[in-house]
Structure formats: C-alpha cells, structure tokens
Design a protein around this nucleic acid. Structure first.
Lengths: 141, 141
DNA sequence: CTCCTAAATAGTATCTATTATCAATTGCTA
DNA sequence: TAGCAATTGATAATAGATACTATTTAGGAG
C-alpha cells in the first residue's frame, strides 16, 4: 500500500486522499471490480468523491502499471491491482477472475510472431466461461 | 455468398435485401470493418438502410457464426466474415489486424484450464504492437 | 398467384460507459 | 507559508450501441 503511493510519487503524481482511498479499495478486493463498484466502495469511505475522479485515476493507475484493466466482452471495464503479468479465467456467472498461472505468449507462439516481423507491444489472453460453482446454476436446459 | 444466405435460411431467418447487401460488403472486404465503415459502404449501394439495421444484423450474423466480431481495446467493435477461429496481431499504427495462424488455446494451456474444472465458453487472444511498415514511424525517440 | 402473419425495417429516442470542461481547491516544492 | 501546477467535483458532452414503434415485407399456406 505504501509502496503503491511511492510509485505514484516516483512518476511525479501527487498523493491525494482520493487516490489513497481508491488504492485502499482496490487493495482490499480480491477480484476485478467495475468502476461502479469501486465508486460505491470509495463513497462509503468518503462520500464526496466524484465518479470522474475514480475514472481519471483508474486510467492513470493503469497507465503507470499499478492496476490492470480487464475488458470483458460485455459491460464495463474492470480493474484490480496489478499483481504481475497474468491472465484470467473470467466467470460469466459470478464475475470472478481466476488467475491462470500460465501465459500463452511464451514458447512457440512468441517465436512465430517475432519471426513475422511484428513488434509486440502488449498482449491479451482471456478465457470466459463458468467456474465450478456457477456451472450448475447457469447451464442451459 | 449464396452459401451465406442459405445459412441464414437454415437458421430460420429471412433473406432481406439489407442482409444481402451487408453480406456483400463484408465479402468484398479483406479486413475487419467497423460498423461505421460497413454502414457507409452499405449506404453507397442502397442509401435508405438504417444503422440500426446494420447493428442488428451484425449481431445476428455474429450470433449464428457467419461473422466474427473483434473487440479492439479502444474504439468500436469490428467485424469480418468468419473464416474459422482466428487470432490477430493488431497494429496500433494503421489498425490492420493481421491474422495469426495459431491459437494459444491448444495443447498444454487448454489442458491446464480443463483440469481446473473451469467450463470454457470462449477465449480471446490478441497481440498489439506495430506492423513492419509502422515500426519506423512510431518508434519512440 | 394472392393472402396472411411473423419477422424485419427505418427512424429516432434512449441508454450506458466514459471523457471533456472548467471553476474551485489542494499537494508539494522552494 | 506562499505560489502554482496538479487535481478535483459537478456536470455537460460524447461515442457506441440498443430499445422502441409504426410501417413494411419475406415467404409459406391455400
């Protein structure tokens, strides 16, 4: 948590109460949160904080790599503290993002892409489906 | 092209002039088009067609698997005729989506995910960066 | 071929997620 | 602690997509 604040300073950004609170909320969650969810939690701590501020700071935090943004195919983007490079199994039922310990951008695929002359900037791998708990509930008839 | 129309009938949907034109436009393009681009081309052929119709039908076509939808991280979704399961190298410079002949959801990763008990519904793999032509132009100083 | 009905359409209003604007406030550096 | 750029809150504006509704139409039954 203090490390995260230092990270902000290190990039030349100010440490504001709003940013503290947003980081606090993120650090207390174990899953990806939508901006709405983050905003609600933030307002429970300090009601005056504007959604605009939440959006602004999530973008900023994502840009400097403190948080990672997850774009589900439908609905709003979701954010969580960046815990290193990772990919997820996203459950369509409960919204949980289960970390996948492996990265597809390794081994053969990486080689193929590099050999094609494409300069890789970033990559995105995401699996959607249903986690074990949600499987029975959401199975089609 | 006729095959695509049959596909529509086979699913119980009617063959309308609008759908013909949308499919024609898609079949004449070799890259992913945004709804706006598709709409423009469609209107060149038949000006009276509504954007709502374009949206509606692209959704429909995507649902029955005739077209595939590509969600770039920024900007609107893009569509093209479905040419089998595929992933892309998306160029941040020129926006072209270069097809990647390989799929990460094969071999070991697939095994790992299935063994975790997660029921896979779909997956998404996308690499962003710069294609060869754009590399010199966009390289940071 | 003509009639009928459900499906599809045009045009527009509406919605959702996000960004822009701008005056007022506030960290931080000197 | 003074000053100024960065940040904020409130809200308007935007982009992309969907919902709505009256009207039209595709395509099967007769």
């Amino acid at each position: 948590m203090t490390g995260l604040l230092n990270e902000l300073s290190a990039h030349g950004y100010k440490i504001t109460p709003q940013r503290r609170i947003i980081l606090q909320v993120l650090s207390e969650s174990c899953r990806h949160l939508s901006v709405e969810e983050i905003g609600d939690k933030v307002k429970q701590i300090e009601p005056g904080i504007s959604v605009a501020t939440v959006y602004r700071n999530l973008n900023l935090l994502a840009e400097i790599g403190i948080v990672s943004r997850l774009d589900l195919h439908e609905g709003p983007a979701r954010y969580e503290l960046n815990q290193g490079h990772d990919h997820h199994l996203v459950c369509l039922g409960c919204g949980h993002a289960i970390k996948l310990g492996v990265c597809p951008m390794q081994g053969e695929i990486k080689k193929i892409i590099e050999e094609s002359g494409f300069e890789v900037n970033s990559h995105h791998f995401e699996v959607t489906g249903y986690c074990q708990e949600c499987q029975t509930r959401h199975r089609k008839p």
